[in-house]
Computed example of a mutant assay.
Amino acid sequence: MSRKKIIHSIIAILVCGFLFWIASVSHASDGPYLEVKFVYDGDTILLSNGEKVRYLGIDSPEIDHEGGKSDPLAWEARRANLEILKKHRVRLEFDIEKKDHYGRLLAHVFMDDGRLVSEVMMLKGYAHVLRIKPNVKYWDRLLAAQRKTMKERVGIWGLKVKEEPAGYIGNVSSYVFHRKDCRFGKQTSVKNSKLFKKRNDAFFEGFSPCRRCKP
């Protein structure tokens, strides 16, 4: 091989390496660091650029902003989110789908100290995992955090909940679990069904409660 061809080959390798590095960096950080303008609850924020962002991978207790009944520890979850984000800017890392049907951005939100906000919320016991395909990049990491917090009975895991004597039915396709008398649970095929005796058995496996029957 001539010297000229060797030089061209080296340049090509360097260019490819540089392009690969650029691609990896852009995937890890899909935008600049931004200020948080407002915190709605434990899993939704408003950024300084006007974008409303829903954290991927978790679900925190719901706040009824219309003055109705909020879920237990909902306001505590909002305060925890506020405290976590205090004095921090954030960046967004997108997964596969970038928006939900409400028009909110769906993102993994990282603070300027490198921490994943949803994971911190999980470790404080103010959220449970929410697996919605195809945005499942950090699901295993978040589930590990949830299992740790469940064992410590922190936050929502310390609440006393009345169990259903009949147990629960989980859908391994949607990763949602239901009361056995829930019409959505009854529609689950035998192939996709998984039975649980207790709520925490379902949570430990990464299932989320049905929003209709609220098991």
Rank of each mutant, 00 (worst) to 15 (best):
D59W: 00
D30T: 12
Y55F: 14
R78N: 04
D43Y: 01
P32Y: 09
D30N: 15
T44W: 02
G68L: 13
G42F: 06
L73N: 04
Y55H: 07
D30I: 10
G67R: 06
D71N: 11
G50E: 09
E66L: 09
G50I: 05
E35F: 11
L46I: 11
P32G: 07
T44M: 05
D41P: 06
G68Q: 10
D59R: 00
S70D: 03
P32R: 11
R54E: 06
H65P: 02
N49V: 10
K37V: 07
P32A: 05
L73H: 07
G57F: 04
A77Q: 04
N49K: 13
A28H: 13
Y55G: 01
L34V: 08
A74I: 01
L47C: 08
A77Y: 02
D43Q: 00
G42N: 00
P61I: 02
T44I: 05
R54M: 03
E76P: 06
S48K: 10
A77M: 04
L56V: 14
V39A: 01
D64W: 15
D64R: 15
G57D: 04
A77H: 02
L34H: 13
L47Y: 08
P32L: 09
V39H: 03
P72S: 03
K69R: 15
W75C: 04
N49T: 12
P32W: 08
G42Q: 02
P61C: 09
A80R: 09
N49Y: 11
T44L: 03
D30A: 15
L73P: 06
I58H: 00
L47I: 12
D30Q: 14
L47T: 10
A77V: 09
R78E: 03
S70Y: 11
D71Q: 08
G31Q: 07
L46A: 14
L56A: 11
S70K: 02
E66A: 15
G68C: 08
W75P: 06
Y33H: 14
S29G: 07
D59H: 00
G57I: 01
G67Q: 11
Y40S: 05
V53K: 03
E62L: 10
A28S: 15
V53N: 08
L73R: 09
V36C: 03
A77G: 09
D43V: 00
T44S: 10
G31V: 12
V36Y: 07
A74R: 04
Y33F: 15
V53R: 03
Y55C: 04
K52V: 15
G42D: 02
G31M: 13
R54A: 01
D30M: 13
K52R: 15
L34N: 08
S48I: 08
L73M: 07
D71A: 08
L47P: 10
G68A: 08
G67D: 12
P72L: 11
V39W: 06
D41A: 06
L34T: 03
P32N: 11
G57E: 01
G68S: 13
A80P: 10
P32F: 11
V53D: 03
T44E: 04
Y33V: 12
L73Q: 12
E51K: 15
D43P: 01
L56C: 12
P72N: 07
S60H: 05
L56P: 04
N49W: 10
D43S: 00
I58R: 01
G31Y: 10
Y33K: 13
V36N: 05
